[in-house]
Nucleic acid binder design. Structure first.
Lengths: 209, 209
DNA sequence: GGGCCCGTCCTCCATAAGGTCGAGGACAGT
DNA sequence: ACTGTCCTCGACCTTATGGAGGACGGGCCC
């Protein structure tokens, strides 16, 4: 038997090429219909509220509002919709936040047509689907979950990333060098590193700067 | 009047979604026909040699061989083909290298269907096309052109980026710490910085690691 | 042969950075 | 009023780093 109703999908991605590709892949499946396309998070939220689609396919990285934020807004504005995230990178700390925001699926852009279609259908049935290669990363990410950096720590780290010395940072922020070192040491602990270079790199990797 | 011959295009991108999107966009135009798809640089080179397409659309970032390398190989293996690069990021130092390798066009994945079609048609006529927003970046990039890092310098810098100390790097590479410092200092000069943290960051920005 | 770059190594030195301990004040939540 | 977190600063110590100088052999190119 075929599905009783057609799954209505809204696409959101800032790259026309990707929208076109997702659209072509989904339309080729029976029982899936793309009812709208958005090129930004804001647009996606507005369209979702108006169309109440079954599934909203969201890119994690878009101009303006990012995918995580958009996930929350879409779900609030259209409670019947499920959100499936499509992302290019596996290393996104945002994935975790997207889960917490209520997304029901995570796909890589490297996924095949069949994986994409399966994911949409599963999500429509209320299941949560993860790209196979993504699942382990999720747990790893959870394992190394980072205690949040304080505002000051982030600020200091950002200046470190611009190549300033501790003394320069102190002058820049009107605080003593001792204070700068304190902030940095605490940031090191939180990031589980022991030098400024690693700190900056892991902070960048985790999208903390 | 319509073109006398159909433009034969080969697509290469490691994301099925993107391939599908490019394919759908191009096939919708008269006089353009997608004759092959590749999911890696190696595959693109092999297919180009076999199919001798008019245009090869190459993603700049693919698993294995990157777009720059692939550009050179494609042009050597299929001298009649033109290479057009499709990239997601504007900030790629690789764009410059791709020009030097002989690419005839550069597009962002954010380009519209019409821009894409125009670019393919222009390239087929022998013109070189740049996404408008890309052109200024190209010149800026040329302005800050970096003297190339030697192999050893790159290697040392890569280990620095992993948080190793000079002594650790020396042990890892079976060379003295003094040598490590020499390589680093030379890299600093080339990158116009004066500390390891800035060096790693600017090297990352320029795609040198 | 004479440059020139690369990779390797050395010494000496000043300073920056990392680590430890302690401590006071501001402010929010309970 | 108490707790916790954050920001602030100090003293003191060890180690790492950056900078200057020189040195030597090996390629490579003209």
């Amino acid at each position: 038997m075929s599905d009783d109703i057609t799954i209505r999908v809204l696409l959101a991605d800032d790259h026309p090429v990707v929208r076109e590709g997702l659209c072509a892949m989904l339309e080729s499946a029976d029982g899936i219909s793309v009812v709208g396309q958005a090129s930004s998070g804001e647009e996606a939220v507005a369209l979702a509220a108006r169309l109440s689609p079954d599934i909203v396919l969201l890119d994690l990285r878009m101009g303006g509002m990012d995918g995580v934020e958009a996930t929350g807004h879409v779900l609030r504005g259209s409670p019947g919709s499920k959100v499936v995230i499509v992302t290019t990178y596996e290393s996104d700390a945002d994935i975790l936040r997207a889960v917490e925001a209520g997304a029901s699926g995570y796909l890589l852009k490297g996924s095949s047509r069949q994986e994409l279609i399966n994911a949409v259908q599963s999500a429509a049935r209320g299941e949560t689907v993860l790209t196979p290669s993504l699942a382990p990363k999720l747990f790893r990410a959870r394992a190394v979950e980072t205690p949040p950096l304080s505002e000051r720590e982030t600020e200091v780290l950002r200046l470190v990333s611009q190549g300033l010395t501790n003394a320069e940072i102190g002058r820049r922020l009107f605080i003593g060098e001792a204070t700068v070192k304190t902030h940095l040491l605490r940031a090191f602990r939180k990031l589980d590193v022991s030098d400024r270079t690693s700190a900056v790199i892991t902070a960048l990797e985790r999208g903390l700067l």
